[in-house]
Simulated assay, not measured.
Amino acid sequence: MKKLNISLFIPLIMIILTACGSNEDAKKNGDSKDSSSSGAKKEYHLIEDGKLTFAASGEFKPFSYMEGNKMVGYDIAVGEAIAEKLGLEPNPQKAAFSGIVTGVVEGRYDIAVASHTITEERLKQVNFTTPYYYSGPVIYTRPDSNIHSADDLKGKEVSVARGTSYLEIAQQYTKNIPQVDSDVVALQSLASGHHDAVITDDITGQNAIDSGLKIENRGYLGVSEQGIAVNKENKALLNAVNQALQEMLDSGELAKLAEKWNGVDITKKPEKNE
């Protein structure tokens, strides 16, 4: 009887030991994964642990604008999607456009998802991801204006949003360039009888027209690439955001977000200038 009990007891001990070993291995593997993920996030040098703090102007419909107390739009949706892919909580921050790049440089924001055109001047301050959309600077005037092309801008009063790349474009035609707080403000002023023209993004201008502003598109001035700004010292975060964007582009998620907020897919580079 004793022999029978021992013969049954030994296999039982072996099963228990095997199970314990498996649990320990699984725990170690789990800890290894958590440690690896945590380590990767630490390499990002985030302003706040577990959060991706990104800036946008909140005054650039349909890319970023306010609905009550919440900031929404294409830029915000892209920032939130990137945060999710990085396993972080999205933390959007509203800021004056003219100071956003400086905020990234000084460490107030991890990144800027704020429709920044990639320019040589800005590249001296921050790194940019691959473009997450493409746009075109456009001349907008009132319907009764005698401005019909870029040549007609010479010497005219052309308003642009402060801190945008449109200032450099306007300077090619005139020295009379009032700068205002946002593109929307510039277009509203134009429709109210101020300024001779405004240079801004084609989608923003069309959105203003759709909302009832009496202004017209009088021609494109080229095609621009919009990128996400990242601090030059944060290469790990730059690489991670680029990877997230590529995944969104490959899966079609980025195009769907563009169509949802802008009505068209703006994620593919035009074959030629319009």
Rank of each mutant, 00 (worst) to 15 (best):
R162G: 09
I199R: 00
P131L: 03
K41Y: 02
Q93A: 12
H195G: 02
S35E: 15
A40Y: 12
G73C: 08
V185K: 09
A112Y: 02
K42S: 14
G58S: 10
L249E: 07
P178N: 03
K70N: 12
W261Y: 12
K269P: 06
V104P: 05
I111D: 01
S211R: 10
S211D: 13
V198W: 01
N91G: 04
I199A: 05
G107Y: 08
G222I: 07
E120S: 05
E233G: 13
V138Q: 03
L167I: 00
Q246T: 09
V184T: 13
D34H: 08
Q125V: 06
S115R: 01
T117H: 01
E89I: 14
A150V: 04
S115G: 07
L249A: 15
K61F: 00
Q226G: 09
V264H: 15
D49P: 11
L123G: 15
Y134S: 09
E247Q: 08
D75H: 04
N29W: 14
S32K: 08
D151C: 07
S135Y: 00
S98T: 08
V230C: 05
S57F: 03
K51T: 15
I111R: 02
F128A: 07
G263C: 04
A170H: 02
Y133E: 14
K260A: 09
K85Y: 04
V223Q: 03
N5E: 13
S36I: 15
K51S: 13
I177W: 00
S37D: 13
T174F: 00
D201M: 12
D31E: 09
D151T: 15
L257F: 05
E80Y: 07
V241A: 10
F9P: 14
G30D: 14
I203V: 11
V138W: 00
A19C: 13
P178Y: 03
G79P: 00
I209V: 09
K85W: 02
T119C: 00
A191M: 09
I139E: 02
L245H: 01
S165D: 08
G227C: 04
A56V: 08
N207H: 12
S7Y: 14
P178L: 06
I215H: 01
E89L: 05
P62Y: 02
K175L: 07
N176W: 06
A208G: 05
L257N: 02
I76W: 06
E157L: 05
A150N: 06
L238Y: 06
E120F: 04
R108Y: 11
K256M: 11
A19L: 15
K42R: 13
A161C: 12
I47M: 03
L187H: 00
V72W: 00
F128I: 09
